[in-house]
């Protein structure tokens, strides 16, 4: 019901304004969306831009998970790691990832993964994954993943740990068989939130100079050329892809932790 009202209001104002550079008609945006493979403004199609953005996010996000989860497990379990990492993490946490973007651009310039491996003129996707962008995505995804993992480990019931120890578990087995599975629901929540933030951060990062692909770039470029239909179509796509990513993690989460919701 609500989407219909929104579309109706939009269409009403679009007809009133009668200016596609200000507010395009609903039909114009839809006709853009139904042709996802058509080249736009000589920059490539929607599909290409989304693939570029998504590969940046996925890579940066995997990096955040690979570092955030083990570190969270250690910090949550061992006081030594807690003391070592907590101060720096508390200091960095309030610093929003978007504030890092200019800094990361300045440090990493437009250096890409392909450049790292010496392939300077490549059409492969790696030529589109800038290290600076990876860094800010990593930064955006890391904190929710890390903090939720720590929280998960800290809330493992003492009863389970004592049971496992009495049943002959050593520290290694305790970690693998009790602490990790018990924190898994919390870790998956962290992954879901982290992925959402990574997806927001990448759009912002792509809007800054130094990028020539990605859905965020397409938004800012179509804004400059007053192509509002492309701009709105891109926004709809960002929402759709974000929801899809989140849904993917949720399906995974529900499958691995049915017990959590039902636990008495």
């Amino acid at each position: 019901m609500i989407p219909i009202i929104i579309i109706a209001v939009w269409e009403f104002f679009a007809i009133q304004a009668n200016n596609p550079a200000l507010l395009p008609r609903v039909g114009d945006v839809i006709s853009r969306l139904v042709h996802p493979f058509t080249d736009l403004l000589n920059t490539g199609s929607f599909v290409r831009h989304i693939i570029v953005s998504a590969s940046r996010v996925v890579l940066g996000f995997i990096l955040a998970a690979v570092i955030g989860i083990p570190l969270g497990l250690l910090v949550g379990r061992y006081l030594l790691f807690h003391r070592l990492f907590s101060p720096i993490i508390e200091l960095l946490r309030p610093l929003c990832p978007i504030a890092w973007i200019p800094f990361a651009m300045a440090i990493f310039k437009t250096y890409t993964i392909a450049d790292m491996f010496g392939a300077h003129y490549t059409t492969s996707i790696f030529g589109q994954i800038q290290l600076g962008m990876l860094y800010v995505i990593f930064y955006g995804g890391f904190f929710p993943i890390f903090l939720n993992t720590v929280h998960g480990v800290k809330s493992v019931k003492h009863l389970y740990i004592e049971s496992a120890l009495l049943l002959g578990a050593d520290q290694k087995k305790l970690f693998k068989k009790v602490i990790f599975p018990s924190s898994l629901p919390s870790i998956l929540t962290g992954l879901r939130v982290g992925l959402g933030i990574s997806w927001m951060v990448i759009i912002a990062a792509e809007m800054l100079p130094g990028s020539d692909a990605g859905i965020g770039y397409l938004i800012i470029f179509s804004y400059e050329l007053a192509e509002m239909d492309i701009l709105i179509a891109s926004m709809i796509l960002i929402g759709a892809v974000g929801a899809l990513l989140s849904y993917g993690v949720k399906v995974l989460a529900d499958r691995t932790s049915i017990w959590q919701a039902k636990e008495r």
Binding site: L159, Y160, E162, S163, A164, V178, P181, S182, L184, S257, W259, Q260, E263, R264
Partner: peptide
């Protein structure tokens, strides 16, 4: 234990 201590997962 008095409390239910089975591993829920």
């Amino acid at each position: 234990f008095q409390q239910y201590s089975l591993f829920p997962w």
